[in-house]
Design a protein around this nucleic acid. Structure first.
Lengths: 193, 193
DNA sequence: ACGGAACCGGAATTCCGCTTCAGCATAACG
DNA sequence: CGTTATGCTGAAGCGGAATTCCGGTTCCGT
């Protein structure tokens, strides 16, 4: 029940896109300080139109997050096609983080003070989660990730990286270090406590 | 120029403490949603009194951050006394993160949307930075941290951990993985690109 | 136990951003 | 073209939180 269904009028669809773009832009740059009216005019529309498409500000933010999730899912699906499990995993990890780096509205929404309206984008989130799980599992089985690594760890790494997206490419260092700790332990199968 | 100087009246000092405590409490629990009036009454005082002590909300938040920096500096200084460089580093890292875990107002301020009023607490920050640098340097020299590790990496790790302070002790996993990647490379001195 | 400087209280003021809604415009379809 | 369901507008309404202000109160030194 993600709403929609029943084709929007052509102009309406176009406007919806414009709003999303403007919102991602402004919310990304100034966070919640960006106000609805600004977003509207930045999209060349009236406030009323924004509210015709999104019930309130939070829903607008949720839509942006959903967007990125969809894109990420597509990326993940593509990565899954790669034959080498290591490449699949790294393509997913870096591809995701690179796209996230360019979308500060998304980052703000995830790291920010108030949680997004998860209920509005539960599906998208779940879809992404499923693919990530598969890719991670394959990498573990192939022995390129320590045996106790799971999808939650993927989230752990990406959240950490997102928190370190301050200066240009700062996060890569973070991920590098993290990946080191994620390799299978040379000795046996059960890593230390 | 951190202001103050010239002893406050006994009751004023007491009230200042109460405000800080209440603020750390409420801002930690509900973030910026906590309002000044709430903080005041939670401290058993009037709003006017809060404003007598802190110019505005941001200054109040800055004071809380400064607090934690001071405490961390003290902790770091104590850790520095340890003879074993490894122990010193780990005491600092875990001690800091544990205290931060208990202070969500601090976390929110650092990770949150709007930067704190750094100018108001530049000194405290610098003081902490200096000690951290020394401890890190000693650990590197002792060969327990990879040669290119520096204080910025310490920040990298702690930021990442803070971003992962969602469920109880979640962050420990993050730090564990991170520490793995921070060990000196077995082979030589210059880690890969 | 007095005087006044330092403090405190909290209603009133101000400011500001989200949201609504009645009236006008336009795409879609015959 | 005419009709009509869809969309669009933006000024006005609201609510709510930060900050101000000043009469009343409390410490402290003498």
């Amino acid at each position: 029940m993600t709403t929609e269904r029943q084709p929007l009028r052509a102009d309406a669809r176009r406007n919806r896109e414009a709003i999303l773009a403007a919102a991602a832009d402004l919310l990304g740059a100034r966070g919640d300080d960006a106000q609805m009216e600004e977003i509207a005019s930045h999209a060349g529309l009236g406030i009323g139109t924004v509210y015709r498409h999104f019930a309130d500000k939070r829903s607008l933010v949720a839509a942006i997050v959903g967007r990125r999730f969809d894109a990420a899912t597509e990326l993940a699906l593509a990565a899954e096609q790669l034959t080498d499990p290591t490449e699949a995993f790294e393509r997913l990890l870096y591809g995701y983080l690179e796209s996230v780096e360019a979308d500060s509205a998304f980052r703000r929404a995830l790291l920010g003070p108030q949680e997004p309206r998860w209920d509005a984008i539960a599906e998208q989130k779940a879809a992404l989660g499923a693919v990530v799980e598969r890719i991670v599992a394959r990498a573990v089985e192939a022995g390129v990730l320590r045996s106790d690594f799971d999808a939650d760890d993927f989230v752990l790494i990406t959240r950490g990286a997102m928190a370190n997206m301050t200066a240009e490419g700062h996060w890569r260092r973070h991920v590098q270090l993290q990946l080191q700790g994620v390799r299978p332990v040379p000795g046996g199968s059960t890593p230390g406590p």
